[in-house]
Design a protein around this nucleic acid. Structure first.
Ligand SMILES: [Mn+2]
Ligand SMILES: [Mn+2]
Ligand SMILES: [Mn+2]
Ligand SMILES: [Mn+2]
Lengths: 217, 217
DNA sequence: ATTAATTTTTAGACAAGACTAAAAATTAAT
DNA sequence: ATTAATTTTTAGTCTTGTCTAAAAATTAAT
């Protein structure tokens, strides 16, 4: 049985190895977990003892198959609960992450599967992130093209946003950026990689940081 | 902010002071919590520091108003989740307690209140236990008369059962005892306080222990 | 009123998970 | 190839919640 802390580490390693390289360094993981590198070292030992990560001193860590499966089950629960909160309890997509961070640790695969069924087996969560099925399988269609990668005059639809900080959602809300909103690239500014987009009948400038956190298709 | 452990202690003290006396002894609490009296002493100090219980060495403990409120909020969550699991996810009443033990610790009063609304503000949980409202108020109609207190030829309806052990629910399932089932007292045996009841077109003997865990009206 | 039994608390230890400060290993720069 | 900077680990400490064994207080029995 995994502790909540162990589960959070697994999720963090999974996310970092997706975004960066397969092998995750101690410092990067410490930053992600908002903790100290020394604490990470301690935890990596424990996870390695349970064969959830492969870990060699000074070489960083990597999830084992078992570790990847565990991580995906937690991610599955997180995203299903987010769907539940938005679809059934009328929460906004900006409110659900923190509550899902708690709910993802509830231990009952029967509950997870029944919830999945109750929600009619959703394929994506409120932020466009794919939801693994009970075997951990998922397809990533809506989150492979970033708004920042588009060319002039491209017309696309928003299919996902990075899930996380409250300030970011505040900004999205202000611009009325939602899943399904249509966007056209009006101009690209090379000096700071910002883009001018046409959205909701008006033009808005998005910084590079923001445009990298919005996914389109 | 309360830890899960602190919340579990509060719930246990609340339950014991309802069933026995207002003031709860260290040993009784230790038994209920399946832990050692010395651990209870430690915890009572912490809860007293947070003004959740009043505690005097060797005199046992008692919930303060604040402690009672906290306990009721946890019980509220526990029971709402039980309703959710039975009504929405089609769990049996015997399966939900353990999952609710986890869900009751999720911290978000907004979630609790939305869930309450989603379930149409239920007054009782699947075992007939009253659900406190967002202010902690509840009325106890269906759990004040025990089956064991009935007289010969009394005809009643089952309105509640003690929520807890799996073996007990196994037995209830076998006898097809559910909320709403009608029961008549056919005989009472004084030598062991067992009762003979007519239920679901047949006669069954219930031990004193069982008949004290079934509530009627 | 003593003695005996029971209950409760203290003292000391342990595991999990975190932290700081210092040491060691690795990587980068000269 | 050394030296310098960075990364990572070790050593030691802290808190929470638990435990055992021993001491103290309370309650019950003679
Ligand atoms: Mn999320
Ligand atoms: Mn999400
Ligand atoms: Mn229950
Ligand atoms: Mn119940």
């Amino acid at each position: 049985m995994l502790t909540q802390s162990e589960e959070n580490y697994l999720k963090a390693i999974f996310s970092l190895s997706e975004h960066y390289s397969e092998i995750v360094s101690t410092n990067l993981l410490a930053e992600k977990m908002k903790t100290k590198p020394s604490s990470v070292t301690d935890m990596l030992r424990k996870l390695a003892d349970k064969s959830l990560v492969s870990y060699l001193k000074y070489q960083g860590c990597e999830l084992t198959e078992k570790g990847k499966e565990s991580a995906l089950q937690i991610i599955r629960k997180h995203r299903l609960w987010e769907v539940f909160l938005v679809e059934k309890l009328n929460f906004g997509w900006e409110e659900v992450h923190d509550i899902a961070e708690q709910l993802e640790h509830i231990k009952s695969s029967k509950l997870t599967d029944r919830l999945d069924e109750f929600l009619h087996f959703p394929k994506v969560d409120p932020h466009g992130d794919p939801i693994p099925d009970c075997n951990g399988k998922y397809s990533n269609d809506q989150k492979n093209k970033k708004l920042s990668s588009l060319s002039l005059n491209d017309e696309v639809m928003i299919t996902g946003v990075e899930d996380g900080s409250a300030e970011f959602f505040q900004f999205l809300k202000h611009c009325k950026i939602e899943l399904g909103t249509k966007v056209k690239i009006v101009a690209k500014y090379n000096f700071d990689q910002s883009v001018l987009i046409f959205i909701n009948e008006q033009e808005i400038v998005l910084s590079e940081l923001v445009s990298q956190k919005i996914y389109v298709q």
